[in-house]
Amino acid sequence: MTSVEIEQLRVYLYVIGAGVVTVIFYYYIIYLYRSEKKGEKDYEKYGKLALDDELDSEILEKNPKLENDKKE
């Protein structure tokens, strides 16, 4: 490829990439708020992860891989 072609390809890739990411990003915003409105998810509860962080604190969502071998 010549340097001009590379330069063009790079501008295309840039515009497409930025576009795709922007779309995904906005979809993510909508997803976050809609899933909460529908009551499917409660994102705000994860804020508590910083507050209840003792080893014996209640676990919000157990890691399924560890349910059998590690019990409090």
């Binding site: 490829m1 340097s3 590379i6 330069e7 390809l9 790079r10 890739l13 840039y14 990439g17 990411v21």
Partner: peptide, 17 residues
């Protein structure tokens, strides 16, 4: 992927020439 994307476009083509 997200953080490498900029690098791929900004940096890599320069090595071609």
């Amino acid at each position: 992927v997200v953080i490498a994307y900029a690098g791929v476009i900004e940096i890599l083509p320069n090595f071609a020439e």
